[in-house]
């Protein structure tokens, strides 16, 4: 990465691991649980957050010196809401089918704590380029978790990935189903998302003992 200084590159790589928005910062949980029953939806959500967080971080950063401190939170909310509404309108006009998939998530993006969290923690105190990188980094960190959870939930819960039957056909009993394998329908249910994330946290902290909480 010749374009980015070492410090800048860290802005992108940190949220991928040591400062992951979901597993470390504890932000953005709601959407991580609600839409990860399907890998496709997880990907769409990750990309949307990438856009909103990237652009939003830049906008807030540019505005950071003129926002009155009393209504800081409200202003941030309005910026996010406006961006999301614009995305929704544009999609509805030019990619109607896609907008219907996204429509349900719009509300979830606005209240996604990651976006507000990064505005507060970073964009309000840094320049636009760095804020952009921070936004991208966190969105990717979020996206990675979403995709991992979505991957396991769809695979184990429905036997498909992105809609394609990868383990065989459960009705015709081909592939894995021929030897008696059954889909674990429970994986499609929301509580399992919580448990999968819990396990991911377990794995992450086992690999990096510095993250373990003191008792």
């Amino acid at each position: 990465m010749g374009l980015l200084s070492k410090k800048d590159a860290k802005l992108i790589t940190d949220p991928l691991t040591d400062n992951n928005p979901i597993t470390i910062q504890v932000l953005g949980i709601c959407s991580a649980l609600a839409i990860t029953a399907e890998l496709n939806a997880s990907i769409v959500m990750a990309v949307s957050v990438l856009f909103v967080l990237g652009v939003g971080n830049v906008v807030i950063s540019l505005m950071r010196n003129i926002i009155p401190s009393k209504i800081r939170i409200i202003v941030q909310l309005i910026v996010v809401a406006t961006l999301v509404i614009i995305v929704d309108l544009v999609l509805k006009a030019f990619a109607y089918e896609l907008s219907k998939t996204l429509g349900a998530f719009i509300g979830l993006i606005i209240t996604n704590c990651i976006i507000m969290g990064r505005f507060e923690a970073f964009a309000l105190g840094n320049g636009p380029w760095k804020s952009f990188l921070d936004g991208i980094g966190n969105a990717v960190g979020y996206g990675v978790i979403l995709i991992i959870v979505g991957f396991f939930r769809e695979l184990l819960g429905a036997g498909t990935l992105l809609g394609f039957k990868v383990l065989g056909d459960p009705i015709e009993k081909t592939g894995l189903y021929a030897i008696g394998y059954e889909n674990n329908g429970f994986m499609l249910l929301a509580p399992m998302a919580l448990i999968v994330v819990g396990i991911l946290i377990w794995v992450q902290r086992s690999r990096n003992p510095a993250l373990i909480e003191e008792n």
Partner: peptide, 27 residues
């Protein structure tokens, strides 16, 4: 944050301005 952004009158002007800009953009 500079002192100027803390005053009540500035806050009000800013809010009104923001509402107008966002409102008209979205409309």
């Amino acid at each position: 944050m500079s002192k100027k952004t803390d005053s009540n009158s500035y806050t009000i002007i800013f809010s009104v301005g923001m509402v107008l800009i966002v409102g008209s953009l979205l409309a």
